[in-house]
Design a protein around this nucleic acid. Structure first.
Lengths: 135, 135
DNA sequence: ATGGTACATTAGAAATGATATAAGATGTTG
DNA sequence: CAACATCTTATATCATTTCTAATGTACCAT
């Protein structure tokens, strides 16, 4: 059994070597997928799991995974970047008090129609963001 | 004719004095509304218009206007915050190459239904973001 | 397999850049 | 004029990026 053969394959396709750090972070990310992390929270998790990895490497890895299509960056928090293991278009709830994210079930977000795009452009993502505060 | 009576009124309602700087920034913002700015671009505009105002004041003013409901903060760019003179819920195109924003006509963004919210929360905004790259 | 070489990757520290804060100077209101 | 808000400049903060030396990895030839 080779639990990461798929991730390894995707890393190779992206020209990324399957290093110890990348595999450890991939394990944390995808073993409990779907989930959302920030560089800080993932770094803290790695430390807690006794995976020695520097914060700079966490940042690099998150961006490399994003470029490789394994993650999606979610820009929703003015303070920090979030990353999502679900890479298909979908919406998010953002809890303003806690700064955490939650996926909106795809069935709950239905765009009646796709807006017509400016000439010469193509859409790289379509996202619906609902900001929430305590009631 | 008092071109800013409305803005002055709204500032007063928010407990903000209509100072020279605030009125000058309001003029830049709302005279060519609807529009989008960042702290940097608005500061540069003020300088160009010979309105001496510090960058710190621009930041403060943008947030005060946002709290007063005159502006809306748009979180869409991992690098900086954008502010929009249109405060009602609406969508944005984000041009990844240039980092600029453009409103999506409201008629073009129609949510088939509002997602059901987690218990104990209320939505403070609903936004649709379409990221664009060159075709 | 083994050793070697080129190159990718990592870590830690330092740099960067947007934004926030502090303290003193200035403006505004009553 | 007194009380207080606002502005400015400089400084602080914090997330993120960059730099550089050390280390790891892949590929090649033996």
């Amino acid at each position: 059994m080779r639990p990461y053969s798929q991730v390894i394959e995707q890393l190779r396709n992206a020209g990324l070597r399957p290093t110890r750090q990348r595999l450890a972070l991939a394990k944390l990310l995808f073993e409990n997928s779907p989930r959302h992390v920030t560089a800080e929270t993932l770094h803290a998790e790695a430390q807690a799991a006794s995976v020695p990895v520097s914060l700079a490497t966490v940042y690099n890895t998150l961006h490399q995974f994003t470029d490789a299509g394994l993650l999606r960056e979610v820009v929703i928090d003015p303070q920090r970047s979030h990353f999502d293991t679900t890479t298909t278009n979908h919406g998010h709830f953002y809890f303003e008090e806690t700064g955490t994210l939650q996926d909106i079930p795809a069935s709950d977000v239905v765009l009646a129609k796709m807006p017509s795009l400016p000439a010469g452009t193509k859409a790289t993502s379509v996202e619906v963001v609902v900001r929430l505060s305590a009631n």
